[in-house]
Design a protein around this nucleic acid. Structure first.
Lengths: 128, 128
DNA sequence: CTTCTTGTTCTATATATAATATAACAGCTA
DNA sequence: TAGCTGTTATATTATATATAGAACAAGAAG
């Protein structure tokens, strides 16, 4: 899977990287137990620092999305995509609340919002 | 409307403030043309700095959600809640994409996600 | 006209986070 | 042993956040 970052983005580099890997998993580009590049290799490919990649990996590790092993490398968790019933749902609800608030302020109602969500889920299931 | 902040939150103070005002508008606590407290008064009430409130106001001003006038004070935009067709929809789509990616990684599928979104919209319409 | 309040601007400081850079360490493999 | 893995440690630079105090310009109210 192609990973790339935009140094001009407002998002931090490690956040962009973590987002792309989450997107890759949701989209199916990355599957459970798939290996990820080493921190040094990926940093080299992206032209960024090793520690920045490491930070992104550790964020995903804390979320239980990837498994990091000192000498075996990094791989997607085999339990990813499974319902793990963490405290995530509480966090998600607050994020949705913020996004919905912002949308309403911009004149985007429930119907259009739900339509956009459905489109994104469809995008995740589609090929390419 | 009661505004309050949590200094221990991971979110920055001005972001919390902006989120609460957006939520207040979405919920109906704040309506178009309603006045907001002056930067000095609100800062005093919340026990934070004047410039921090000013930063939150300016963020909302850039989004076209509030109107800031040098000597008339601050008020909710009269065109808020209306469909203003800004570039916001593009930003929203990317935010939804990130949230959906993260949800799928945590085993939360389309059905549950849509349910949570509908609940939040219902919450916005409900009293209290 | 004077006084007060408004948001804004400026300068300054302290703190935290982000990103980079080297270097070394510990575990495993070929 | 040589080479790879992630980790740890120290250091530096840059940016964002939050605070503080002062001053300014525009308007409202006495």
């Amino acid at each position: 899977m192609l990973l790339q970052i935009d140094v001009n983005s407002e998002e931090t580099l490690y956040t962009q990287l973590a987002n792309q890997i989450r997107y890759g998993i949701a989209k199916g580009y990355l599957q459970p137990d798939d290996p990820l590049p080493s921190v040094r290799n990926l940093a080299s490919e992206l032209g960024i620092n090793m520690h920045t990649v490491s930070k992104a990996y550790n964020k995903l590790k804390e979320e239980g999305i990837i498994i990091v092993n000192r000498s075996k490398g990094v791989r997607i968790s085999s339990s990813v995509l499974a319902d793990r019933r963490t405290g995530y749902e509480t966090v998600l609800e607050e994020k949705i609340r913020q996004l919905v608030s912002q949308s309403i302020c911009n004149g985007i109602g429930e119907k259009r919002f739900l339509g956009m969500v459905k489109n994104v889920f469809t995008e995740m299931r589609s090929e390419t």
